[in-house]
């Protein structure tokens, strides 16, 4: 997996960490998904979803993972 794609996992986890501190886990996943939808280009979302599908996103936090599933 390339370093640049690995960066997407770090970014998603950072976002999830922030929203986790704001409230309940399902709200955190919802807000993480909305943030990614609002600020990430479709290509970035697609790349991370591809990584998840390929089993290459093990480092993704549960909330970030939940968020990405909402964006499928």
């Amino acid at each position: 997996m390339s370093q640049t794609r690995e960066t997407l996992i770090t970014m998603a986890n950072q976002i999830a960490t922030f929203f986790q501190s704001q409230g309940a886990p399902d709200l955190a996943a919802r807000d993480t998904a909305q943030h990614i939808k609002d600020f990430w280009a479709p290509r970035m979302r697609r790349d991370l979803l591809d990584m998840i599908a390929a089993g290459e996103a093990q480092r993704l936090s549960p909330i970030a993972s939940d968020a990405m599933h909402r964006l499928k």
Partner: peptide, 18 residues
């Protein structure tokens, strides 16, 4: 209707060949 790439994302995408 979708957001575009930010500067670091552009550079990442360039390295990815896209």
């Amino acid at each position: 209707a979708d957001p575009g790439l930010r500067i670091p994302n552009m550079l990442d995408a360039a390295i990815e060949g896209e």
